[in-house]
Structures are given as C-alpha cells and as structure tokens.
C-alpha cells in the first residue's frame, strides 16, 4: 500500500514535470532561440488553459460554453487562441527593446488575468471553469494516470522532434542570428520583424498548449492557478538552469527543477504543521537563490547551447555540398 502511494506520487510528479517541460520548450523558442524576453507566460498559459477548459467541459450556466467537444479539439483551441493573442501582442510590442518588451508582456499578462478573474460570462469569475475532462480518466488507477502520461510524453516527443528540426534548419539559424546580432541579420537581407513575430507566436502558442494540458491535468482552471510565480517564473528558472537555447536542456531543467520543488515539499511536509506552512516560503527563496547562482557561475546552464555543426562544402566533391 505504501509502495502504491509512492508510485502514484511519482506518476503525479512525472505528469506535472512533462507539462512543465512542454511550457519550457515554448519559453526556449522565445528566449533561447530568438532572445525575446517574454515574461507574459502566465497570460498565454491562461488563454490556453481557459480555451481548452471552455471547449471541452460540459455546458455551464455561468461561463461561456462549455462546448463538450473532444479533448484534441480543446488542445488545438489552446494553441490557436494563444497563438492569435500572441500575434496581436507581437504586432504591437515586438518592436520594443528587451526590457520594454519584458514590462509590456508582464502588463498584458496581468490584464488578461484581470479579465479572466472578473469577466464571469467568459471564464466563470473566481470559480473558473470546472469539470474539465482528462484523457483516460475512466480507466482504473493507476492506468488512467499512466494513460495521461503517455499522452503527455507523445506530445512532448513530437514537439521536441519538430522544434529540434526547426533549430537546425535555416529558420532556426536566422533566429539565432537575430538574437546574437540583429543589425547583421537585417543587413544579410533577413526580415527581422517577421522572424521575431513567428518565433514569438510559435513560442506563445506552445505556452498556450502548456496551459491547456495543465487544465486537463487539474480538471479545472481558476484565476488563482494563473499565479506568475508558478507559471511564469518557474518555467523561466527551468530554462535557465537547464540551458537556454538547448531543447534537451529545457526538458532536463523542467524535470530537475520540478523534482527539486516536489522533494523539498516532501521534506517540509515532515515538519510540524505551523513550521511546514512557513517552510514552503523557504523553498521559493532557495529556487530564487539557485537562479542567481546559475546566472553567475554557470551561465550556460546544465546543458549549454551547442550550435549545430554546419558542414563546409566537401573540397574533394564540391557537388556533394
């Protein structure tokens, strides 16, 4: 029984870690690939989470929908709506310099949070959207959890392969060029604005998917779940610790930080209860400190970025370039 509980705990850990890994890949496309400092992850997460929840949950008298549609439709909706919002935001804000972009995206994320909190006929107000379905939830334990984890793993693998392909493709090369030297990229005839917008929309759409999957996992979404600490800061720390610019690093960082987060939770859980509630704050402090240490001592993260090797034309067989 004890072992079974531990097993279930591990499954829960794995599910959340995989969801964070997906969000982290989105942040990596923005920051790691293109150098866009998007601190509005919470905003796109919220759009995605509410889209999935409204599309897939059964009809409700309070909020919009629910439309009771299949889960894949809900996830596509998360990607599409988060991407659409990002397109509008990007058109307006991407011309801003890095710090300004950070401030603007935080502001937009906060506006979105206010809208979801207060606009009851859209998102159900403070109670949010309930009764969101989860894939395989009708299966007995632990198979329902395992089924969901398989779904998450497949999505993550698919995304990883696609994004890794994009990374070594000319498209990814242009993004890195823009990140490292915008003027040079522009001088080489690249349409800097268009590429930045593409990267911003793609990354934000994945953050939307991150939100959608989170809504499926918790089977609900409320305004309180859109906490900038958990959905903006944590993915950022994961990416920087894992190694920004490296997709494997993004995934490794997500798993490592989430492991650290949950393990400290177990430790603080062993403390007497009034200490335990306080000790939870030490955890945030330590994660912040870890970020500072990584930034100062290991700026590349656990798996630093490795630019793909670009093969020079073969001298003996020039036609085989």
């Amino acid at each position: 029984m004890e072992l079974f509980g531990l097993f279930m705990y591990l499954l829960g850990f794995l599910a959340v870690a995989l969801i964070y890994a997906i969000g982290c890949l989105g942040v990596n496309i923005n920051w790691g690939f293109t150098g866009l400092f998007n601190v509005g992850v919470a905003g796109f997460f919220a759009v995605g989470a509410y889209s999935t929840a409204i599309v897939t949950s059964p009809p409700s008298p309070v909020h919009l929908g629910g439309f009771d549609l299949p889960i894949p439709v809900g996830l596509v909706a998360a990607i599409v709506f988060a991407g659409a919002v990002a397109w509008v935001v990007g058109r307006i804000c991407l011309r801003l310099r890095s710090d300004y972009l950070a401030i603007a995206t935080v502001g937009i994320a906060e506006i979105l949070r206010l809208v979801f909190r207060n606009f009851e006929s859209l998102g159900g107000g403070p109670f949010g959207v309930q009764r969101v379905p989860r894939p395989f939830e009708s299966l007995p334990q632990p198979w329902s959890e395992i089924g969901f984890i398989v779904v998450l793993a497949v999505i993550l693998l698919l995304l990883y392969v696609l994004i890794q392909r994009a990374w070594s493709a000319p498209w990814g090369r242009v993004l890195r060029a823009i990140r490292d030297n915008e003027e040079a990229a522009a001088a080489a005839g690249k349409n800097v604005e268009a590429f930045r917008l593409q990267a911003f929309v793609l990354g934000s759409a994945i953050m939307g998917l991150f939100g959608g999957l989170f809504a499926l996992y918790t089977k609900t979404i409320t305004p309180n779940a859109i906490e900038p600490l958990m959905v903006t800061f944590l993915p950022w720390v994961m990416l920087i610790v894992g190694g920004s610019g490296n997709n494997k690093g993004a995934i490794l960082g997500a798993v490592a930080i989430w492991a650290l987060w949950t393990m400290t939770e177990i430790l603080t859980g062993l403390l007497p209860s009034d200490w335990a509630s306080r000790a939870a704050f030490i955890r945030v402090f330590l994660i912040g400190l870890l970020l500072q240490i990584v930034l100062q001592r290991f700026p590349g993260g656990l798996l630093p970025e490795k630019p793909p090797i670009i093969r020079a034309p073969d001298e003996k067989h020039p036609d085989r370039a």
Partner: peptide, 14 residues
C-alpha cells in the same frame, strides 16, 4: 542588461 532583469525578477521572489 537582460541578465540583470532576470536576476532582479529572482530577487523579487526571494
């Protein structure tokens, strides 16, 4: 400068 912004974001939460 962006590294400083990230660092200050962490300081805020600390």
């Amino acid at each position: 400068t962006i590294i400083l912004v990230i660092a200050s974001f962490g300081i805020a939460l600390m």
